[in-house]
Amino acid sequence: MTTPSDTHVTSSPRKAALRSAALDRRDALDIDSRLEWDPEITAQVLALPVWKGPGPVSAYWPMRSEADPRPILEALHERGLPLCLPAIVEKRMIFRRWAPYEAIVPGGFGTLVPAPTEPEVKPAILIVPLAAFDRRGYRIGYGKGYYDRALAELGPTISIGIGYAAQEIEAVPDEAHDRRLDWIVTERETIRCG
Rank of each mutant, 00 (worst) to 15 (best):
A17M: 12
A17C: 03
A17Q: 15
L18T: 07
L18P: 03
S20Y: 01
A21Q: 15
A22V: 04
L23D: 03
L23N: 01
L23P: 01
R25L: 11
R26P: 02
D27V: 04
L29T: 11
D30T: 11
I31F: 04
I31L: 12
I31S: 14
D32H: 15
S33C: 11
S33E: 14
S33G: 09
S33L: 15
R34M: 14
R34T: 07
E36S: 13
E36F: 02
E36P: 00
W37D: 14
D38C: 08
D38M: 07
I41C: 05
I41M: 04
I41Y: 05
T42P: 01
L46G: 06
L46A: 08
L46Y: 11
L48S: 07
P49G: 03
V50Q: 00
V50P: 03
V50T: 03
K52F: 02
G53C: 03
G53S: 14
P54N: 13
P56D: 12
P56F: 09
P56C: 08
V57E: 12
S58A: 15
Y60P: 08
Y60N: 05
P62M: 08
P62A: 09
M63S: 07
M63G: 06
R64Y: 02
S65T: 14
S65C: 10
E66N: 08
A67Y: 04
D68E: 05
P69E: 04
R70D: 03
R70T: 12
P71L: 03
P71C: 03
I72C: 03
L73M: 15
L73K: 02
A75S: 13
A75N: 09
H77A: 15
H77E: 13
E78G: 10
E78N: 11
R79N: 06
G80S: 11
L81R: 08
P82N: 11
C84D: 11
L85F: 07
P86I: 10
A87R: 13
A87F: 01
I88T: 15
V89E: 15
E90S: 13
K91Q: 15
R92P: 01
R92S: 14
M93D: 08
M93V: 11
M93A: 07
M93W: 06
R97V: 00
W98G: 05
W98Q: 06
W98N: 05
A99F: 03
A99Y: 00
P100H: 08
Y101H: 13
Y101A: 12
Y101M: 01
E102K: 12
A103F: 00
A103Y: 00
I104D: 00
V105L: 10
V105M: 05
G107V: 06
G107E: 05
G108L: 09
G108K: 09
F109S: 08
G110A: 07
G110R: 08
T111R: 02
L112Q: 14
V113E: 06
V113R: 06
A115L: 08
A115N: 02
A115F: 00
T117N: 11
T117G: 13
P119M: 09
P119L: 07
E120I: 15
V121Y: 10
P123E: 06
A124L: 11
A124E: 14
A124W: 00
I127Q: 01
I127H: 00
V128C: 07
P129W: 07
P129R: 08
P129S: 10
L130K: 04
L130V: 05
L130H: 04
